[in-house]
């Protein structure tokens, strides 16, 4: 019973943060600020949806004792870890490429990287 409430709560948090990330992607003015919204918020939201699946698997394993739910929870944990690490590195790579291709940050008050000779 408590597990059900936790599962639904994690799902609601995860989808809400995913929604906010997409709104930021559609709303912010340039590529760097859009990356703020998508990288942080969709990673956080997807990790929370994965967490709800992990809680579901653990609760089902305690309830039924079936080994396949352990496999479900452990594989979901690995998928969430892979997602968190690869998203951070991927967004770093896109930001670096965007700055090298000459896209200036919009409305910026300071740009220390633009002052460095390439």
């Amino acid at each position: 019973m408590i597990a059900d409430v936790l599962v639904v709560a994690c799902l609601v948090i995860g989808t809400a943060f995913n929604c906010l990330g997409i709104i930021g992607l559609l709303r912010f003015p340039d590529v760097y600020t859009r990356m703020h919204a998508t990288t942080k918020m969709t990673t956080f939201g997807s990790v929370f949806t994965a967490l709800s699946v992990i809680i579901y698997g653990a609760a089902q394993f305690i309830g039924t004792g079936d080994g396949q739910y352990v496999t479900l929870a452990v594989h979901t944990l690995l998928a969430a870890l892979a997602l968190a690490v690869t998203n951070a590195i991927g967004s770093h790579a896109i930001a670096r490429g965007a700055h090298r291709s000459g896209i200036k940050p919009a409305q910026a008050v300071v740009d220390r990287l633009g002052e460095v000779p390439p």
């Binding site: 995913n18 859009r34 998928a79 969430a80 997602l83 967004s91 490429g97 965007a98 291709s101």
Partner: peptide
């Protein structure tokens, strides 16, 4: 710009991974 499109594709990939994880529970298929 191309960078905006790359960010959008990255976001779609993240969301698809999350959806696949949840679909694994819906269909009970690991």
């Amino acid at each position: 710009t191309i960078a905006d499109r790359a960010v959008a594709v990255d976001t779609v990939n993240t969301l698809v991974v999350a959806a696949l994880i949840v679909l694994g529970v819906v269909y009970q298929q690991i």
